[in-house]
């Protein structure tokens, strides 16, 4: 028995006139290309179905208060998912430091809030950018493994934040940032509006600007990028800096409405951030995706969580089910994307 059988039955692709694969392969391809072609519709449908299920389980699910209680925590998560989106689009990369970065920046924002909102926003953003730049140089210039580099960065940042704060919680001072976190417009919390506007603007710049185009192309194929007379290093650094900035933004938004927090407030948000980006349609293989997709994916994830809780699962059970579901969804999404093209 040689490997030939296995190979033959694997029906190598690339036949003439797109005529490769048996009938079931063709059918599966048709199905997945249908889903891929209408990805956005599928996601909107999923959102509608989740809300419908929630409403069936508990009629108050669709009330404004209940919907907003899902959207509010989705706002910082959307920022972190966008951070992941940038590095993922850049190509097969992932940033495991976003949770720690967001936590540290939230802590900095809170402790600087007595100096006014501007300082409490700008300083953490700059800190995020620096953390991202170090990650970017480590991965892009020194060719470090992104998982190791960002994991190490995460624990360094977390440890420094712990040391500086002594592990104590800090509380937001009265001021602009606090009133922003608690405020709302037409029933929608200010943080949700702010994040939605920022993501929309970033998406617009990302899709129409040269930098976004270069990031996507470099993420699709580094070799092809180089043979077009470009270098992928700049894009790598840019992607990590953006990831740092958006992690910091997530931390600031979180701080604005949580008020009292410690160094680990968002430490567990890294995996949900990756999940939100992938569920929203950002490819783990690079080259595909946009900030608004990451944002929408985070909202979907938020509703999934709350539906599971409404269904009567304890928070622990909920985390188990959600973990399994997220892995399944990520797997299926990536599979569909691969066979659909």
């Amino acid at each position: 028995m040689t490997p030939l059988e296995t190979q033959l039955s694997g029906a190598p692709s690339g036949g003439p006139a797109g005529a490769s694969g048996g009938p079931d392969v063709v059918e599966r391809k048709a199905l997945s290309s249908l889903l891929v072609g209408h990805q956005e519709l599928v996601r909107v449908a999923a959102l509608v179905i989740l809300i419908a299920i929630g409403t069936i389980l508990r009629s108050s699910f669709i009330s404004e208060h209940s919907l907003m209680s899902v959207l509010l925590p989705a706002a910082p998560l959307a920022c972190l998912a966008t951070a992941e989106a940038f590095v993922m689009i850049r190509g097969k990369l992932v940033d495991l430091s976003v949770g720690s970065t967001a936590s540290a920046c939230a802590l900095v924002a809170v402790s600087l809030s007595s100096h006014g909102a501007l300082i409490a926003i700008v300083v953490p953003l700059a800190l995020g950018a620096v953390i991202g730049a170090i990650n970017g140089v480590g991965v892009g210039v020194f060719r470090g493994n992104p998982i190791i580099i960002t994991l190490g960065m995460g624990s360094v940042v977390g440890a420094i934040a712990l040391g500086r704060s002594g592990g104590n919680s800090e509380t937001l001072h009265h001021g602009l940032l606090e009133s922003f976190g608690g405020g709302s417009l037409a029933g929608v919390p200010d943080p949700v509006i702010a994040v939605a506007v920022i993501l929309a603007a970033t998406s617009l710049l990302f899709t129409t600007g040269r930098w976004g185009r270069l990031l996507r192309l470099g993420g699709d194929s580094e070799e092809a990028f180089a043979s077009s007379g470009r270098q992928p290093v700049t894009g790598t650094i840019l992607a990590f800096v953006l990831a740092g900035v958006f992690s910091a933004l997530g931390g600031i938004v979180l701080a604005s409405y949580v008020g009292t927090l410690d160094f680990s407030v968002a430490s567990n948000e890294t995996l949900p951030a990756v999940a939100g980006a992938v569920i929203g349609g950002v490819s783990l293989f690079g080259g595909e995706g946009s900030p608004w997709q990451a944002g929408f994916g985070s909202v979907l994830l938020g509703f999934l969580t709350s539906v599971l809780l409404v269904a009567g699962l304890s928070p622990y059970q909920e985390e188990i089910v959600e973990g399994v579901l997220v892995v399944a969804i990520v797997y299926v999404t990536e599979r569909l994307l691969v066979t659909g093209r």
């Binding site: 996507r216 194929s221 070799e223 092809a224 180089a226 043979s227 007379g229 490819s283 293989f285 093209r341």
Partner: peptide, 30 residues
């Protein structure tokens, strides 16, 4: 670097269009 080569107008069109040449997840115009 390839950037410097491109600035002087030098380009290399690779042999392996699948692995090194084209962006298969981006449309043709890109």
């Amino acid at each position: 670097t390839s950037t410097r080569a491109a600035r002087r107008g030098l380009y290399y069109c690779p042999e392996d269009r699948k692995g090194q040449g084209l962006f298969y997840r981006r449309p043709i115009h890109e």
